[in-house]
Simulated assay, not measured.
Amino acid sequence: MSVKNLQPRFFVLLLFIVVAGVLRVTAAGHLTPFSNFSPLGAMALFGGAYFADKWKSYVFPLAALFVSDVILMQTIYKQYAAGFMFDGWYWNYIAFAAVVLIGQLLIKKVRVVNIIAASVAGAIVYWLIADFGTWMNPTNIDLTTGLPYTKNWQGLMKCYAMGAPYIKNTLISNLVYSGIFFGLFEFMQHKIPALAVSK
């Protein structure tokens, strides 16, 4: 594989990641009719599936997540900022990296069934890790009691139960944005041979 062939593919993949980050920012704070949907999960799956170098699968999507987080924390969600980020941010990044890994493992071949399976798995894994971080963070409170979640099994299960309704939006957005990202890139590969470089 020549550098000439690799460069267009890399830059187009990177462009998809940047667009996902921009969509995330513009969809926040009810700036669009689609504010309940985030392209983050699809961005992680897309990066995991397409970047030939595994480190790129993590670095570029995580960088887009970081930049969009900083922008959102300093503008739309400034009241939630702790410095330039938010409390417990690292749990979200661990969860996001896990979704990239799911993209690597489940989308070795871009097929509809693989993308659906990865979207479902990504939504569940993200919820489990991110809400575990919510439970661990002493600044997060149980909205039913006004107190921090109890640090026992019951407190953890209550935290998961409180977050469970959001899985639907995460799953739907994973499916919708994955359909757009994967479908568009596969179409582009078909039309532009320089993009169709195997891993």
Score class of each variant (00 low, 15 high):
residue 48 G to R: 06
residue 90 Y to N: 00
residue 124 I to N: 00
residue 49 A to D: 15
residue 81 A to R: 03
residue 98 A to L: 09
residue 114 N to P: 13
residue 95 A to Y: 03
residue 86 F to W: 13
residue 56 K to T: 05
residue 84 F to N: 12
residue 54 K to I: 12
residue 86 F to M: 07
residue 82 A to M: 14
residue 115 I to S: 04
residue 113 V to A: 09
residue 74 Q to C: 12
residue 130 A to W: 00
residue 110 V to A: 14
residue 81 A to H: 09
residue 122 G to I: 01
residue 65 L to N: 01
residue 115 I to T: 03
residue 66 F to I: 07
residue 52 A to L: 13
residue 76 I to W: 10
residue 130 A to E: 08
residue 56 K to C: 12
residue 119 S to G: 10
residue 99 V to G: 05
residue 107 I to D: 13
residue 87 D to W: 03
residue 110 V to R: 00
residue 82 A to N: 14
residue 71 I to S: 13
residue 56 K to D: 11
residue 79 Q to H: 14
residue 112 V to A: 13
residue 57 S to R: 07
residue 73 M to F: 13
residue 100 V to E: 11
residue 54 K to R: 14
residue 102 I to W: 01
residue 130 A to D: 11
residue 70 V to D: 10
residue 55 W to V: 15
residue 56 K to H: 13
residue 103 G to E: 07
residue 104 Q to L: 05
residue 68 S to V: 01
residue 87 D to E: 13
residue 129 I to A: 02
residue 91 W to H: 07
residue 115 I to C: 06
residue 130 A to G: 05
residue 52 A to N: 14
residue 115 I to N: 07
residue 113 V to Q: 08
residue 96 F to R: 02
residue 86 F to R: 13
residue 56 K to G: 11
residue 62 L to W: 07
residue 49 A to W: 14
residue 106 L to M: 07
residue 121 A to L: 06
residue 72 L to M: 14
residue 68 S to P: 09
residue 108 K to L: 10
residue 110 V to M: 05
residue 71 I to M: 12
residue 69 D to Q: 07
residue 66 F to S: 12
residue 132 F to K: 00
residue 125 V to F: 07
residue 75 T to E: 14
residue 70 V to C: 10
residue 50 Y to G: 14
residue 63 A to L: 14
residue 126 Y to E: 06
residue 130 A to V: 07
residue 103 G to R: 04
residue 101 L to E: 04
residue 77 Y to H: 13
residue 74 Q to L: 15
residue 62 L to G: 04
residue 108 K to C: 12
residue 122 G to Y: 01
residue 69 D to C: 04
residue 132 F to P: 04
residue 87 D to I: 06
residue 128 L to E: 04
residue 91 W to E: 10
residue 115 I to V: 15
residue 90 Y to A: 02
residue 131 D to T: 09
residue 84 F to L: 15
residue 69 D to G: 10
residue 63 A to E: 08
residue 50 Y to N: 14
residue 73 M to S: 15
residue 48 G to D: 10
residue 96 F to K: 00
residue 85 M to A: 08
residue 104 Q to H: 02
residue 54 K to H: 07
residue 110 V to C: 07
residue 82 A to G: 04
residue 48 G to F: 07
residue 60 F to E: 10
residue 123 A to S: 12
residue 118 A to H: 02
residue 53 D to Q: 15
residue 63 A to T: 13
residue 111 R to S: 06
residue 112 V to C: 05
residue 96 F to W: 01
residue 122 G to L: 01
residue 74 Q to G: 15
residue 83 G to P: 10
residue 92 N to M: 08
residue 129 I to F: 04
residue 91 W to I: 08
residue 119 S to C: 01
residue 92 N to D: 06
residue 102 I to C: 01
residue 48 G to M: 06
residue 73 M to L: 15
residue 75 T to P: 04
residue 124 I to G: 01
